[in-house]
Simulated scan of single mutants.
Amino acid sequence: MKNKKLLFGMSLALTALALVYCSKKSDSATENLTTEQKSTASDRSTEAVASSNISIYGAWHAGSEYCSWATVRTIPEFDSKNHWLIDRGDGQPSVNLIVLSFVNPLKLLNKTNDAQTVNGIPKGMTQDIVNYFKSKNIRVMLSIGGITYTDDWNQALSTNATQLGLNAAAVAQQMGVGIEIDYEESSNPNLTGLQAFITSYRSVLQYDASGNNHAARLTIDLAAGDRWLIDICRKATTDWLKTTNPVLDYANAMVPSRQPSNASAAQTDWQEHINGKSNFNPVIPPLAPCKFTGGLYIVTSRNAAPECINFNSSLIKSTGNYVQTVAPNGAGTTSGMLGYMFWAAECPSTRRVCTTPPNSCENGVGIGAQTYGIPIPMQPLRQQ
């Protein structure tokens, strides 16, 4: 799902204000749903499962060290803080995708070995952590970048973008994970280098519409709407996210600078991708709803958000109809976005609570997964 200084600015920038933080993305200590909550979710889910159009329901994972993932963790310790992700209270996972955030692109290019990194990958992103989720049929991806590593993306792309793509593909194959591109350069991004990265990755791992090859999944993060990361958004929408001859699997519309105040505000951002920006020069074309997810926070300031602890009061619920039914407007033929991504599991910031007991998110994200009948494991994605 970054910087170790305060970031202020772009309303569409992916950021979590904190003394130490990374950015992209209950009153009870129990990790199980109450009988009443299970019953309520079950009643709601009967109709929702039949009509649910949500394929992706995932969380960026910041780890316990604000996205550095610098320390190897034992599975018992990791599970004590993250059990809600694999068990929402009825034995089923709360999500069907986890994106471990973040890998430094320059260290990945150089296959760096240092106090925090092994062969370019943070020491905490171990195969054991990947398998912790995959053993529960939760797909896993690694996110390369984040706003802290924007300069490192620029340097890596200008140094050897092709080799960076080959290194990313090798890690994906070795660990059985997908790769997310989180390149947050808002001013003059190196699109030639980014194209070379994608081309070299795809030379090893071709686009797989079936989704069976987890390592072949390659995605990109865009801003919440079309008014930030404009050049990246234009390039991705024009060349990489087509429903015909797709290059990338899909995009994530990241969280804005703060949680939208209501469903309309969130949907306004997402609608910009669907409509495109015909008034821009050059224009940004429309993006098919089936080619992106929408991002929401699950922790805000020092409190767990309703999205974490109270599904009935959450944007997950109030935007659910829109996400499942929004019509295409110039690209794609089927209605509905791909789903949701949540920022962020565990500890993204010193100024935000962690999603660990007593603030674990089975009563928000977890009930949403049950309500919408989220497919676990993730099924092949809509292509049109």
Score class of each variant (00 low, 15 high):
residue 248 L to F: 04
residue 278 S to R: 04
residue 25 K to H: 07
residue 233 C to I: 00
residue 260 P to Q: 05
residue 23 S to N: 14
residue 315 L to T: 02
residue 317 K to V: 05
residue 234 R to V: 01
residue 196 A to Q: 15
residue 91 G to N: 06
residue 262 N to I: 10
residue 19 L to T: 15
residue 31 E to H: 06
residue 327 A to Q: 14
residue 206 Q to Y: 05
residue 199 T to E: 14
residue 79 D to P: 10
residue 167 N to P: 12
residue 259 Q to F: 04
residue 77 E to H: 10
residue 144 I to R: 00
residue 163 Q to V: 08
residue 152 D to G: 04
residue 279 N to Y: 14
residue 326 V to S: 03
residue 77 E to F: 15
residue 233 C to G: 09
residue 335 S to T: 06
residue 155 Q to I: 12
residue 362 E to Q: 15
residue 220 I to P: 00
residue 17 L to G: 01
residue 111 K to F: 03
residue 44 R to F: 07
residue 227 R to S: 12
residue 374 I to H: 06
residue 156 A to F: 09
residue 254 M to F: 00
residue 19 L to D: 14
residue 122 P to T: 05
residue 119 N to C: 04
residue 68 S to Y: 09
residue 166 L to N: 05
residue 127 Q to F: 01
residue 167 N to Y: 10
residue 296 L to K: 05
residue 4 K to F: 13
residue 296 L to V: 12
residue 142 L to Y: 13
residue 364 G to S: 09
residue 107 K to D: 07
residue 284 I to Q: 06
residue 328 P to W: 10
residue 253 A to S: 13
residue 59 A to S: 15
residue 90 D to S: 08
residue 283 V to Q: 14
residue 232 I to T: 09
residue 130 V to F: 03
residue 13 A to L: 08
residue 236 A to I: 00
residue 220 I to L: 12
residue 195 Q to T: 14
residue 328 P to H: 07
residue 138 I to W: 13
residue 226 D to N: 15
residue 308 C to E: 02
residue 300 T to N: 10
residue 235 K to R: 14
residue 109 L to P: 00
residue 352 R to D: 13
residue 133 F to K: 11
residue 318 S to D: 13
residue 269 D to C: 10
residue 200 S to G: 03
residue 138 I to P: 03
residue 30 T to I: 13
residue 262 N to E: 10
residue 314 S to K: 06
residue 135 S to H: 05
residue 145 G to L: 04
residue 202 R to A: 11
residue 116 Q to W: 08
residue 79 D to A: 07
residue 11 S to P: 13
residue 85 L to V: 11
residue 363 N to Q: 15
residue 322 Y to V: 07
residue 366 G to S: 12
residue 89 G to K: 00
residue 30 T to Q: 11
residue 169 A to N: 08
residue 161 A to I: 11
residue 275 N to Q: 11
residue 71 T to N: 07
residue 72 V to D: 03
residue 104 N to S: 13
residue 32 N to M: 15
residue 272 E to P: 06
residue 104 N to A: 09
residue 14 L to G: 12
residue 97 L to M: 12
residue 334 T to G: 00
residue 252 N to Y: 03
residue 130 V to W: 08
residue 214 H to E: 07
residue 194 L to G: 04
residue 42 S to Q: 12
residue 359 N to R: 07
residue 364 G to P: 05
residue 47 E to C: 00
residue 101 S to K: 02
residue 1 M to C: 10
residue 197 F to N: 03
residue 146 G to R: 01
residue 32 N to I: 13
residue 384 Q to E: 07
residue 185 E to H: 08
residue 192 T to V: 11
residue 175 M to F: 15
residue 69 W to S: 02
residue 29 A to F: 13
residue 8 F to V: 15
residue 179 I to V: 14
residue 222 L to R: 10
residue 254 M to T: 03
residue 84 W to K: 08
residue 105 P to M: 04
residue 181 I to H: 06
residue 67 C to R: 04
residue 356 T to N: 05
residue 102 F to V: 13
residue 259 Q to H: 05
residue 136 K to M: 00
residue 192 T to W: 07
residue 304 A to E: 01
residue 180 E to M: 14
residue 271 Q to S: 13
residue 286 P to G: 00
residue 290 C to F: 09
residue 20 V to N: 11
residue 168 A to W: 03
